[in-house]
Nucleic acid binder design. Structure first.
Lengths: 209, 209, 209, 209
DNA sequence: TATGAATGAGGGTTCATTCAT
DNA sequence: TATGAATGAACCCTCATTCAT
């Protein structure tokens, strides 16, 4: 390995770490003040860099926001996987619990960013809007498919999966919001227990059997 | 009554009607372009008044937005009334259906404004945030109380009313969002039917009994 | 005439006069420092107005420059009229002298602006470039046509009017530059006499008959 | 000669060739996009060097531009030599034709750079301005002297050599501009023929003898 | 000598709000 | 009360130059 390689590897590492630092600063700033009230000045102050440096790493304020958003949505989307209905697989309900707990853990870990997602996801910018719309759209579709499946397999009762899907989505979003907006860590600590209850609500509803 | 009074009554009437016209223009503008992309220029153009006149009626762009929001939230809040559990009252479920249909009718009628509420009411401003927080807080409380009641009366099964309440809230909010954001009027026309399904979801959940 | 009319007439006058004042300040600033080194800050300082006010009257720095340029080019173009060759018209050469003196008077009166035209006409901006190209193009065409005419009428000798035209244009431009760039007023005072000599050069060349 | 010398000679040669490469890249960039729209980034990209390297060879963007300009002006100035009026020398007119063709050949060869000279050498910077002023000043002086000479020797008629000189200069500059700005190579191919016509214009003017 | 990441002054433009008429 | 011209703070982004490696 030539010294040149060593240099460029090191440089590239440094670049990457600085990029992350800026993203981190931006995440913090956006989470604290929201998109519109966050200025590039806030981000660079947080990252301890000069104005111009910011633009070496990101095209614009909008671009860095979109990247943060993408990051979160990608992670969330990745954590959404189907339930295994093969024979010998764990019971469906247990799997669901697993899924839900996993996704909510992610949300809690990214609380700052999710706060942005929840707080001002919409109306910022055409790109952001589209990305979010896509995300929620595919999430809705995923849920609907799952419900269709459940119906076909006889787990679920006869209902309009379209409507049921957005009810489920609604409970999830509301749960995320509660998790993310609550100042104290009360909820965050009980994510798993709460997730079980939300799941239970979705499955059994309110009424006495 | 002196002629002076007549004048001032007339003046006051005129003032009130102009105020309403401005609010109306603002509602349209905010609904169409969102808070941040709506400029005072849009509002006064819509209202057919001069720049300065706007400030004779409203303190600021923020203030008029807050007033529109207040208006909507007040109406919504007013439409939230408890279920009558006295003997001889209509069956609880029927009453619930009534309530839900009424509130959703309101939402559909104020589609433009509700769109703002759903899209970007949050993160704009401390005042707005507080107001919204209050609204959702009291709504949540109302739901929780209702659930407690239902539990006590034996309608509902044993569950954490705190969690159940925000699940219910989540389904409502999501429903509102669907109603308000969909371009076509497909959903809006079927509000009543859909409301029944949402209610059904909340009551019975997904599972086959 | 209603008071309203009076008001709006007055307002409109004021607007016009302020517009002119800004144009004047811009003219001065551009002439002194050139396009690129003139900042909107210079113009508004010269005009004694606030930053935003500038944008009430002009779309951009570029726009005001283009307007100044248009003004000058229009005036110059207007002063370029053909020679009358009807019977009974004054001798052609006398008419030419007239035309030249008129146009140069214009240049001297607009010295500041013409300085910009001469100094940095090109390379600023696509719009400006196009406008200038058009102007010089039509001027060249005008000269060529005149020369063709002269040839046909037997005044002028056989020569390539294309080449001759840009030679003539060259002497004019150079003359304008001399007029406009000289610090002292020596040249400006003798415009008429000099114009005669330039004309003479163009007509008779350098050689002894 | 010590080995050290050899090294430094080689180093110095390398330095010189790199310097030239940068100049060449700058020439291309300036010619294509003009001074203001050419960024240091364009130059270093063209030269294939790093940002910092540029500043090892040139003090600033402005400095490299001035150097290119100097280069051109020096070459042009060198090609301006007097007419030989000794007995036995070729006829004056033939010599003039020679000179003109030589200088225009130079212009055509340096089309890219001359384009800069013509388009925006002026108004960029005090240094550049001064240099250009000097150049044109000495050119004007040269022409005037030549004309004085011609007058004294009886070739030329009585005229104000000051005025005549800038007329001649004007035709030359305009010719250069035509050569340099025309997109197609039509003109460039006919330089010699055109030069003759320009010369003819200067000597004989427009009128029928 | 070569590199290229970092710098930061600077400029054009927007828009909510004010104020003289 | 109504007007709308005027205000100026605010903010994003560029790019020539520097400097640590």
């Amino acid at each position: 390995m030539s010294p040149n390689d060593g240099r460029s590897v090191r440089a590239s590492k440094k670049r990457e770490s600085r990029r992350k630092a800026i993203l981190q600063a931006a995440r913090r700033a956006f989470a604290e003040k929201g998109y519109h009230h966050t200025h590039v000045a806030d981000i660079i102050a947080g990252a301890g860099i000069a104005r111009g440096t910011f633009y070496l790493y990101f095209e614009s304020k909008n671009a860095i926001f979109l990247e943060l958003l993408d990051q979160l949505l990608d992670e969330l989307q990745a954590s959404i996987v189907g339930v295994d209905t093969e024979e010998g697989a764990p019971p469906v309900e247990a799997q669901l619990v697993d899924r839900v707990q996993q996704i909510l853990g992610l949300v809690v870990q990214n609380r700052a960013l999710t706060r942005i997602l929840v707080r001002e996801a919409v109306g910022l910018d055409a790109d952001v809007d589209r990305r979010l719309h896509e995300f929620y759209g595919s999430l809705l579709e995923y849920i609907r498919d799952a419900l269709e499946n459940g119906k076909r397999m006889g787990f679920l009762r006869e209902l309009d999966t379209e409507v049921a899907a957005f009810c489920v989505l609604g409970t999830i979003k509301q749960f995320m919001e509660q998790l993310v907006m609550s100042e104290d860590d009360h909820l965050a600590e009980n994510v798993d227990r709460l997730a079980l209850q939300v799941l239970d609500f979705n499955l059994r509803g309110l009424l006495k059997s």
